Amino acid sequence: MSPLQSALIVNAVVLATTLKADLGTKEVTGRRLRRPLFIAAAIVPLFVHTLYTKGPGLSVEVGGAAVGVLIGLIAVGLMRVHRDTAGRSVSTAGVVYAAFWIVIAVGRSVFSYGAAHWYGTRLATFFVRHGAALGDVSGIITNGLVIMAVVALLTRSAGLMMRARAMTPVSAPAAGGPQPAARRRA
């Protein structure tokens, strides 16, 4: 499978599962938060064959992870997390959230296509000039994109979990409201 095909598959899987899990109003459950772990466990071994521990490969992997964190944090910020009438933690995501993930997926796909068809020689020259072996260039690019996608999903789940847990429990008194006798100070 070519790096372009790999990138397109990863983009499609990430986009479809994220939109299915988040669009509309959905309860924040452990199962929903764990789903990206299973996706990562499936995607990474299929598409990441070598982790680079030095040089441009490591730089691209770390950069991909950093961009993935940023994408995940922005995505969490585009969701509303609140309690429904039954007191359950729920999130609501709409058109802006969907558009954000679509733009990210299309951007990664266009970059992958460009690396394969438009500027692959210049990209390879750049990586080789900075210490990468020519045979590692497509692996480096694939790793960066896959790591970015997986880290974005994991960050989105972690952020959603933290926002849901930070909400005031339904049974807690409202700020400034009456407090139980044991908590009152004389």
Rank of each mutant, 00 (worst) to 15 (best):
G30T: 00
G30E: 15
R31L: 04
I39K: 04
A40R: 04
A41I: 03
A42F: 13
I43S: 00
P45M: 07
L46D: 14
F47C: 11
F47R: 01
T50W: 04
L51V: 13
T53M: 06
T53I: 12
G55S: 01
P56C: 00
L58Y: 07
L58F: 13
S59K: 13
E61M: 12
V62S: 08
V62E: 05
G63Q: 09
G64N: 04
A65S: 05
G68V: 02
V69F: 14
L70C: 03
I71M: 09
L78F: 11
L78I: 15
M79N: 05
R80D: 15
R80E: 15
V81I: 15
H82G: 00
R83T: 15
D84L: 01
T85E: 12
S89A: 15
S89G: 12
G94M: 14
V95P: 02
V96L: 15
V96K: 01
A98E: 08
A99P: 07
A99I: 13
A99M: 13
V103A: 11
A105I: 04
A105L: 05
G107W: 10
V110P: 07
F111Q: 09
S112M: 10
G114M: 03
G114A: 13
A115I: 10
A116S: 07
H117T: 03
G120P: 14
T121P: 12
A124Y: 06
T125W: 00
T125L: 13
F126D: 08
F127G: 01
